[in-house]
């Protein structure tokens, strides 16, 4: 029960962070990706700030707690090397991101606004998750 409240709170904090940062708006994300247009570099600051915060937290946690090194859930322990799947998958994701301005977090967060295109995106995204499972697992 306590865990449940914490997990909900972390998701909430993550979502509020996306909103405060402006990443919840696809138009702003596209303005960041449009280097040749009216470029909005602020999302680079969002990423830098997130990385700095998480990086510092990791540094202090690891300094005080060796056990934190075994942090990954088993499913997240992926092969260490760069391979074709990684590059191909990331490249395909980038095209979808560039077409819409949506990555998974903001797309899910936007659902409550009730925009038709948002529903279309999220439904298709889950179809994509399912397609991957169909083609590459079992």
């Amino acid at each position: 029960m306590k865990n449940t409240v914490y997990l909900f709170a972390y998701g909430l904090l993550f979502g509020l962070g996306l909103i405060v940062a402006g990443m919840s708006n696809p138009a702003k994300v596209l303005a960041f990706l449009d280097v040749a247009g009216a470029w909005d570099p602020s999302l680079a600051l969002v990423m830098a700030s997130a990385l700095l915060t998480l990086g510092l937290a990791r540094y202090f946690m690891h300094r005080n707690n060796d056990a934190a090194d075994s942090e990954q859930e088993p499913s997240a322990r992926v092969p260490a090397g760069v391979d074709g799947k990684l590059i191909t998958g990331a490249a395909i994701f980038g095209v979808g991101w560039g077409l819409s301005g949506f990555c998974p977090g903001p797309a899910l967060l936007g659902l409550s606004a009730g925009v038709l295109g948002n529903y279309a995106f999220v439904t298709a995204m889950f179809a994509g998750f399912w397609l991957f499972r169909l083609l590459h697992q079992r």
Partner: peptide, 25 residues
């Protein structure tokens, strides 16, 4: 603010690419 320029059809294609691509990658 939530400004989606793309049509629902294009967004569905984008969603499929994002879903499949993020799992593959």
């Amino acid at each position: 603010a939530l400004d989606l320029d793309a049509s629902p059809g294009l967004l569905a294609i984008a969603g499929l690419l994002v879903g499949y691509g993020t799992r593959l990658g």
